[in-house]
């Protein structure tokens, strides 16, 4: 099935819940609403013309420090406008003192700058409009990469998830999501309901914090040393700190 056909089918079935779709070098990404996520996944699995029977991986993304390139570009454009306006002011001041010949060229320059400013402002407006897409309400995305071995097509499903949201587990559809969901729960702190055994899979069970979040310090937090301190026999610690703090 072609990518646009898949999107058409999904939109026909779920309407508003399918928020956006994008294609990058043949890879289809569909953004869906969290409340309908489980139904959509179920549909993708069971619909005979789609039949996504294989889930290569599932993961999450933390967007809290996402660079937002378009917003930045718009800001840069506005800055350019400001410097140009200052230049015009300077030129006008010069104009009052200048002789005739110079005055001609200065006037021309001012005219040119004014035209440029109008153009730049228009572009900045446009960029701002586009930059609205980059604004997000929620911190995370959960990502499902699906593949149909029978029909040989792929799809990536994304849904925005906040810190308090609880995602419905997909273990009843693809049992391989069990470990992935444990990992997401461990590293991002996103909770899943109806999961048969949701617990930390990589970090120790009583670890504090979720390391894949962008605000988690790479070299560890202050309290981390306690983990070893409480588990090793006394008098065994050679260094004051287990982590090389900067």
């Amino acid at each position: 099935m072609k990518n646009d056909e898949i999107v058409g089918l999904l939109k026909g079935e779920f309407g508003e819940a399918v928020k956006a779709s994008a294609e990058l070098s043949g890879d289809l990404t569909v953004k869906v609403d969290l409340s309908k996520l489980h139904e959509i996944l179920q549909f993708l699995r069971s619909c005979p013309s789609l039949e996504f029977d294989y889930l290569p991986f599932m993961t999450a993304i933390d967007y809290s420090v996402y660079p937002k390139p378009k917003t930045k570009e718009a800001e840069a454009k506005l800055k350019e406008v400001k410097t140009k306006e200052e230049k015009i002011k300077e030129d006008e001041e010069k104009l009052t003192e200048a002789k005739e010949e110079e005055a001609e060229s200065l006037k021309e320059e001012i005219q040119k700058l004014k035209e440029e400013i109008v153009k730049a402002k228009e572009e900045a407006e446009k960029l701002k409009e586009e930059a609205k897409e980059e604004e997000r309400e929620k911190q995370f995305d959960v990502v499902y990469q699906l593949r149909s071995i029978k029909h040989s097509h792929d799809i990536r499903i994304k849904a925005e998830v906040g810190e308090e949201d609880i995602v419905e587990s997909a273990t009843d559809i693809w049992s391989s999501t069990g470990c992935d969901e444990c990992e997401i729960y461990d590293m991002f702190g996103i909770k899943f309901k109806n999961h048969p055994d949701l617990r930390r899979i990589l970090m120790p069970e009583d670890w504090v914090g979720h390391p894949y979040r962008k605000d988690y310090p790479l070299k560890g937090k202050e309290g981390d040393d306690e983990y070893l301190d409480t588990r090793l026999p006394e008098g065994q610690l050679k260094k004051p700190e287990h982590t090389r703090m900067p």
Binding site: Q236, K238, H242
Partner: peptide, 14 residues
């Protein structure tokens, strides 16, 4: 691996 999860030298432990 100068990170949160790795012991910085086993001589801390044994």
């Amino acid at each position: 691996f100068d990170t949160y999860s790795v012991v910085q030298g086993v001589d801390i432990v044994i």
